[in-house]
């Protein structure tokens, strides 16, 4: 295959599988403790707040605020060689957890710490869809 996907793919395990299944269906989900309600990402084998084992996945709004963003001018993997410079952002979801993702779409020159963003979904292989973020007008 000449156009095989050359970037790193997530290592899917029992803990994070629901995240990637939701993403494939176009939903952003985070792990939530059914005992104390704490939401966290990446998922954890026990709740970091109450140490409870009973946890579930909650579909969230996909809206949040830019914590920060950076522009990679170096490709640490060959697969990103054609993308540099590319933007990586950190987003604090309205529901609490912080995710690292890519800032894509128009108007990136208006990026600012605290700016509102919303999720979009980019299928990269038949199995994997990456949640990414764009600035909200």
């Amino acid at each position: 295959m000449s156009n095989a996907y050359a970037k790193p793919l997530p290592k899917i395990d029992l803990l994070n599988r629901p995240f990637w299944e939701h993403a494939k269906a176009g939903r952003l989900a985070v792990q939530r403790c059914t005992g104390c309600g704490h939401r966290h990402m990446p998922p954890s084998p026990v709740c970091p707040t109450c140490l409870g084992e009973n946890q579930d996945w909650e579909v969230v709004s996909g809206r949040g605020r830019l914590v920060s963003w950076v522009t990679f001018h170096r490709a640490y993997w060959g697969g990103f060689g054609a993308d540099v410079p590319y933007d990586v952002c950190m987003v604090e979801l309205d529901e609490g957890p912080i995710l690292v993702s890519n800032l894509v779409g128009a108007g990136q020159d208006k990026a600012a710490v605290g700016a509102a963003v919303s999720v979009l979904f980019e299928p990269v292989t038949p199995e994997i869809t990456l949640p990414k973020f764009r600035l909200v007008e």
Binding site: K7, P8, N16, Y76, V88, V113, V124
Partner: peptide
């Protein structure tokens, strides 16, 4: 960075301690 230090954010091209410090410095600037 890259393959020698895998982390959960690799699929988005986020790697290296330098990138983390760039993230923090952007916040300090703001």
């Amino acid at each position: 960075g890259g393959e020698e230090s895998p982390n959960v954010w690799d699929p988005w091209g986020y790697t290296s301690p330098g990138a983390a410090h760039a993230m923090m410095f952007r916040r300090h600037m703001a």
